[in-house]
Every structure is written in structure tokens, then in C-alpha cells.
Amino acid sequence: MNEMSKIVRTVACVLIIPGIVFGLYVILHGHLTPGGGFQGGAVIATIPALFIIAYGEKSRRILNRDIPSLVESLALLTFISLAFLGLSATFFRNFLVNGGFIFGKAIRFGINPGYLNTGGLIPLLNLVVGLEVSAALSLIILIMYFGSKKEVLKDAK
């Protein structure tokens, strides 16, 4: 795949910031609005795809498979560890909700605009899922890109 024109490459670089910000917005508001970890993560994962399209062969130098792979594993581990932390009551117990600590604000009943600082464990789990999904989808894109160039993975024998 050849690289595209300078306009496209520059715009791709500029779009990194809005892309990540929008992804994080969707992830962080997962407990208040439609969307959440998976959707936000998918938004973030569009950035490597954009880079591959814009830079073609050149992107091979900066994109590597090891980092998303490690991030993915660590995010999954964090997810299950958060679930284990509730084990003093039961697995997946939301021990942070209404606790006053992080994401621990108690909310009144009735109509309200939605407060970010609520939800307890749920926003944290959303964050971890967002990390995991963005890493995993980037990994899929990278592997499919490298695979499409007939570059068989080293360990596939």
C-alpha cells in the first residue's frame, strides 16, 4: 500500500487528539449515556487504522504488535482483579458505590442531568474494558494488515 498525499497524512496526525478524546469521552460517560467501554475502545482503535491508510508501508516502522498485546493482557488482568476485590462480600460486588471515594458520590432520586462522579466500580470497569478493546482491535487491524502482505507470523510454523 502506498502512502497518501501530504494533506491526508497531516490530517491523520491532527486527528489523533480528537480521536482519543472522543474515545475517552465515550468510555468515561459509559455509566451515564449510551456507549461505554467497548464503543469508546473501538473509537480509539480507529487511529491505527487511519495511520495504516495514510502512511502505507511507512507505518510499519512505528506500529508494533507487542505493545497492544501486553496492554490487552494487563487490562484483562485488571478487570478480573477489580472483580476479585469485591470478594469480601461477593464477586463483582460494587464496593465503591456511594462510598464517597472515587466515583462514590451518592445521588438523589429523581430527574438529574447525570453526574460523572457516581457509579462506583462501573466507570472503572468501563475504563479497563475501553483499554482492552482498543488494544485488541488495534492488534486485529495490525495482524490483518501484516497478514495481507503475506508476511506470515513468525510463530505460526
Binding site: 498485546s69 493482557s73 488482568l77 478480573i80 482483579s81
Partner: peptide
């Protein structure tokens, strides 16, 4: 009952690391 499911899951996620 839960740990029977959760421990293999934790092990699965820790294995690549």
C-alpha cells in the same frame, strides 16, 4: 462455587503476561 469459575479465568488472563 464462584472461585471454580474465577480462578481459571484469572489464570487465563495472567498466562500471556
Amino acid at each position: 462455587p464462584l472461585l471454580l469459575i474465577a480462578i481459571p479465568l484469572l489464570t487465563a488472563f495472567a498466562t500471556p503476561v
